[in-house]
């Protein structure tokens, strides 16, 4: 393996993809913190009348607002999965061919067995990451549906009404709330592992994974540019 390589700079993440990523990160951070507080509020007692105080109302407002940002951001990203470049395309999330599965095995070997990668792995989402994001989208959908189902009775929102069928399906609002709250921990786990793996892959691959979500550029060895 030659060590002195020529690397080519590739524009991988277009602006809408990067914007989606960071808006999503921000929305999830706000949703997770305010969601946890809604589940476990603490009493803020001041020497003032309750009518001058609205902190729990504000927490809930932030949660609902971030929920809307999350929803529309997701819709835009879904649209971009059909019109964006090949790295943003929807088919990068679903391993439909044998090459994709080989890629997944390769990434698993790098991640778990910590072998030094032997072949090229996909310059965009590696195929394992793509598959995990695909599963994540379903959890996003679950959180969105249960969230808006719980939000519906608070408002005359069309989105709340659109999710009204979730409550009878799951039994009662208590069950919906329970699972909506439990899924908060999925995001905590996901963020932990996601951020770590970004750093890890950046470290072992040396392709600029971390900075790519800021500037959009990644680097690939010229001899591996057949992909």
């Amino acid at each position: 393996m030659p060590s002195t390589q020529t690397y080519r700079r590739l524009y991988v993440w277009e602006m809408p993809v990067r914007l989606y990523h960071w808006l999503n990160a921000l929305a999830i951070a706000v949703l997770a913190v305010t969601g946890y507080l809604i589940g476990r509020p603490f009493t803020v007692g001041y020497a003032q009348e309750a009518s001058f105080q609205y902190w729990f109302g504000t927490v809930r407002f932030l949660h609902f607002m971030a929920g809307y940002v999350f929803l529309f951001n997701m819709l835009v990203r879904t649209y971009w999965g059909f019109v964006g470049n090949r790295f943003a395309s929807w088919d990068k999330f679903i391993p439909l061919n044998r090459q994709a599965w080989r890629d997944i095995v390769e990434v698993l070997r790098i991640d778990i067995l910590q072998t030094r990668g032997t072949g090229p792995i996909h310059i965009g989402h590696n195929r394992l990451a793509g598959l995990i994001y695909f599963v994540t989208f379903f959890i996003f959908m679950f959180q969105g549906l249960t969230g808006f189902a719980l939000y519906g009775p608070n408002s005359h929102s069309v989105f709340g009404n659109l999710a009204a069928w979730v409550v009878p399906l799951m039994g009662s609002e208590a069950v919906v709330r329970q699972w909506h709250h439990a899924m908060l921990w999925f995001y905590v786990l996901f963020t932990l592992v996601h951020v770590y793996l970004v750093f890890y892959h950046d470290y072992v691959e040396g392709r600029g994974t971390t900075s790519s979500m800021v500037g959009g550029w990644k680097f690939e060895r010229e001899d591996r540019l057949d992909d």
Binding site: Y36, G39, R40, Q178, H181, A182, L184, W185, V188, L189, L192, V193
Partner: peptide, 13 residues
């Protein structure tokens, strides 16, 4: 859910 989540979170960390 929080007890379970926190345990899983700690394990992941």
């Amino acid at each position: 859910a929080d007890t379970v989540g926190l345990t899983l979170g700690a394990a992941a960390a």
